[in-house]
Design a protein around this nucleic acid. Structure first.
Lengths: 207, 207
DNA sequence: GGTTCGATATATCGAAGTGATATGATGATC
DNA sequence: GATCATCATATCACTTCGATATATCGAACC
């Protein structure tokens, strides 16, 4: 399975620690994920990542006094009964940190070309591309370019072929222009890569 | 609940009968839904719609009966690629037809502005816009324009504000260009509406 | 001074959608 | 005539979504 969200969260945690609520804003503001990702995705994803040892809850900031910071979250007994309650409202935010294992997992997932086909996971990968080697970056861009060229052909065939009404045709034409814009962007990125004009170097290919 | 897929399927069935496999291709080729919708969505959706009486299975063509004149299949072989066999080679395909109730439900759902925020459901609505009255069309376009303008502001703020590395910044800038392209498209559609230059008239506002 | 409002923050639930896979028939290619 | 691609339906486990509940804080408003 893909779990784009896992990669995205780990990528954000590579930079610095975050808590769940903040991650949502960062997905929007740093990784360019347009629609706000729901908390019903983020909190389960964090729990999953913690369970498998990729991240750890580093602190549960309590509000105001409320001393006694439980050292490690001992799976705060989540009573599923209706009256969960008693939780302090903005009850301490749980700040997560990526583990060594998480770092290794992240670069592996980011480089893994499996299911990078959709627009969202592609642009997320590009936003995190500084963690890839140059050759992996080029591979990512070229695969995406190939997919988009194929899609562009389909769209043009649809526009030319089918007996679409004006609105449907307009949608298909607009979709084609969107793909062309993506392609131009990718060409630009590729030529930056080739001129080694890369924005920020992080890792290099092994010689 | 939104159920974008329900609207899309009903919209396709407004035109003519379809079976599940075909619906997937049509979602791509007529409604401009880029990623192929999975069968795990389509078949359950059809079952749901049938259960609630919006569609009915009009025929289950058994394999190899070969009625010689595929009256229902009408013009096939329109698909790209080379020679698509006009012979039906499949076991019983379940062909669905929209019911009267389904038609009423469709126009209601299509006009309902609830959760039209995401790109996919918006472009699907536009592709089916001939079933809307002019004023509903304008409302749809204007709401989307407002959303996109807001999003554009956020994206520009992100680009200007945050200390993003080159790749992440490139992603945000590209996202902003995409939104600008969408906005230009919508402006064009709006001005067609105003000049009553609409591609195909289907329903009119009540006077 | 009170109150409403919006942002911050975590969490859970049911429903909807995804990707993978199974099954099988048919026609096309080698 | 074996094998491959396409057509076609279906189901499964898992992910993601949208809605909702709870609670605190700061600002804005009357």
């Amino acid at each position: 399975m893909i779990r784009v969200l896992d990669i995205a969260i780990l990528g954000l945690l590579m930079e610095r620690d975050h808590h769940g609520y903040e991650i949502r804003a960062q997905l929007r503001d740093r990784l360019g994920i347009s629609a706000n990702v729901s908390f019903g995705s983020i909190y389960p994803a964090l729990a999953r990542l913690e369970r498998q040892g990729s991240v750890e809850a580093v602190a549960t900031e309590p509000r105001l006094s409320s001393l006694s910071t439980g050292s490690l979250s001992g799976e705060r007994a989540t009573l599923r009964s209706r009256r969960t309650s008693s939780g302090l409202g903005r009850r301490g935010r749980k700040v997560y940190r990526i583990t060594e294992r998480g770092r290794r997992e992240f670069v592996e997932l980011l480089a893994n070309p499996a299911t990078l086909d959709d627009a969202r996971s592609f642009s997320m990968r590009v936003a995190l591309a500084k963690y890839l080697t140059p050759s992996l970056r080029v591979g990512l861009l070229e695969r995406r370019r190939a997919d988009l060229l194929e899609r562009l052909g389909e769209l043009r065939a649809s526009v030319a072929n089918a007996e679409l009404d004006g609105y449907a045709r307009s949608v298909m034409e607009h979709a084609a222009r969107g793909v062309e814009l993506d392609l131009a962007w990718i060409e630009g990125l590729l030529s930056s890569e080739r001129s080694d004009n890369t924005p920020q170097q992080f890792v290099r290919d092994a010689k």
